[in-house]
């Protein structure tokens, strides 16, 4: 404020101060954003950093009293090798991959079809139904797992990974549908009308227009479904009790924590390996996610 007044009031405005104040403002805002972001980055990266460090240590080094716990003295792949060659760990990994793949496919198929019809078919009650879909997402899963036990018990799915393929979509579908409704609603109505006139059927409009145009939304929803299935802990803990059916999340806890003995090195190595697929998925899909595809559909 005072800078602007000075520049305007002076008989010969100093060019430098006028330009400089704009630049300075920009610089200040950039620096403060960086400062704020750095705090976040540090807070979020400390646990993974500690996880990686610990995973690279031998049991002896972990339990050693001296030395800096944040730095690894003699890095070793011992924990990783031991886990990778462990038959039950391999089993958990495969179970997780299979459950996650199924959950993502099923959830996305349901969510896309539901969102398309809710967004475009314009039938009576579509609005109420969309709200209803979202409301179910607000019910915490921890309230549901006991009544669900009855249901999956009746279906004979206890201690079978199919139980997760059945249950995780109930957590993922509402939110994925909600994301997809938002994306589909942002596609101008003229686009499907043009396609209708061009001779497309509704399924063709969905496959040839909506899915490609809403790809960023589909990727966001896929990431969400992936996270629900890959990171889910409560349902596998409640419904899967034998080692050959467990997924990574519960398998790691069951196998590497025996009573009050924690195999810290291996726990952390397992966590690193369990975290790898989401990290890879996120980095790979993020590029598509950012490429805004909807630009240029209409004016502007």
């Amino acid at each position: 404020m005072s800078g602007a007044t000075a520049a305007a009031g002076g008989p010969v405005p100093r060019k430098k101060s006028k330009v400089g104040s704009l630049e300075r403002q920009q610089r200040i805002s950039i620096r403060s954003s960086y400062a704020a972001l750095s705090i976040f980055v540090v807070i979020f990266l400390v646990p993974p950093f500690y996880m990686v460090m610990t995973a690279l240590k031998s049991s002896a080094e972990i339990s050693a009293q001296q030395g800096n716990p944040w730095i690894v003295q003699s890095p070793t792949m011992e924990n990783f090798i031991q886990l990778a060659t462990d038959a039950s760990f391999q089993r958990y990994f495969i179970n997780s991959v299979w459950v996650t793949a199924m959950v993502v496919i099923i959830s996305m198929a349901i969510a896309i079809l539901a969102a398309f019809s809710l967004s475009r078919m314009g039938f009576k009650g579509a609005q109420v139904l969309s709200t209803g879909v979202f409301l179910t997402y607000l019910v915490p899963p921890s309230l549901l797992f006991i009544p669900l036990f009855q249901i999956v018990g009746t279906l004979g799915l206890i201690n079978n990974t199919w139980v997760l393929v059945l249950l995780f979509p109930t957590l993922a579908v509402p939110f994925c549908t909600w994301i997809m409704i938002g994306y589909f609603n942002s596609i101008p109505k003229e686009l499907d009308e043009a396609a209708l006139i061009d001779g497309a059927t509704y399924p063709q409009i969905l496959v040839k227009i909506f899915i490609p145009v809403a790809l960023p939304g589909i990727i966001a929803a896929t990431i969400f479904a992936f996270t629900v299935a890959w990171g889910g802990f409560l349902y596998p803990l409640a419904y899967l009790y034998s080692a050959d059916q467990a997924t990574l999340t519960v398998g790691i806890v069951r196998e590497l924590i025996k009573g009050d003995v924690f195999a810290w090195g291996m726990i952390m190595a397992a966590c690193v390996m369990a975290a790898a697929p989401p990290i890879i998925v996120y980095t790979f899909l993020m590029d598509y996610y950012v490429a805004g595809l909807t630009a240029g559909a209409t004016k502007g």
């Binding site: 101008p188 003229e190 043009a194 396609a195 909807t294 240029g296 559909a297 209409t298």
Partner: peptide, 16 residues
């Protein structure tokens, strides 16, 4: 699709 007509919209409605 069976009326054999073509339409041009105000906002063009091109497939992006």
């Amino acid at each position: 699709r069976d009326r054999d007509i073509a339409m041009v919209f105000q906002n063009y409605a091109l497939y992006p």
